[in-house]
């Protein structure tokens, strides 16, 4: 399989997972009042200086939410950030609490499934003793790149 065929096959897999879960994703994303009450229920948020990138709803909106809105068409750079969000910044401990009943871990797990269709998997360099420079997140939570301007965006 050449590169473009591979990319096409990946995109198809992503769309299949998205389509299968479309209605649920839409309902759950839409129900979120962006109230941020879930923040303090996540021990990772509490233990990382209240960095918003560890907040449950932030992780969902900026991984699953973006994949859903862009129908899976996101570039490598954004995939890398999503990988940080759903693997590095969440251990799926299912302790998060949302007053509206949104099942955040379920949605993060779904984001992981979607990322796997793009060949992006979980890596835990920090648990393997890698030096900090190798796993530090080098992006600002307010400056998510625009996937339309990312040259690697998959069509």
């Amino acid at each position: 399989m050449n590169d473009s065929q591979q990319k096409k096959a990946e995109a198809e897999k992503t769309r299949a997972v998205l389509n299968h879960n479309q209605a649920k994703i839409k309902l759950c994303l839409e129900a979120c009042a962006s109230c941020s009450i879930c923040a303090e229920s996540c021990f990772l948020f509490n233990n990382n200086n209240h960095d918003p990138r560890f907040m449950p709803s932030y992780k969902v909106i900026n991984s699953l939410g973006v994949l859903y809105k862009k129908k899976g068409r996101v570039g490598t750079e954004q995939l890398k950030r999503m990988q940080d969000l759903v693997w590095r910044n969440c251990v799926l401990c299912t302790r998060c609490y949302c007053p509206l009943g949104i099942d955040i871990p379920d949605l993060i797990a779904l984001a992981r499934s979607l990322l796997r269709t793009r060949g992006v998997c979980g890596v835990y360099p920090h648990t393997l003793g890698a030096p900090e420079e190798e796993y530090i997140m080098e992006w600002d939570p307010q400056e998510l790149s625009d996937p339309d301007e990312d040259p690697d965006t998959q069509r």
């Binding site: 009042a33 962006s34 941020s36 209240h50 918003p52 709803s57 932030y58 307010q142």
Partner: peptide, 15 residues
């Protein structure tokens, strides 16, 4: 929504 960082991080014009 305008001042608390964690709320700003998840706010969009829609909210």
């Amino acid at each position: 929504r305008l001042t608390v960082p964690k709320v700003i991080a998840v706010s969009s014009p829609y909210d």
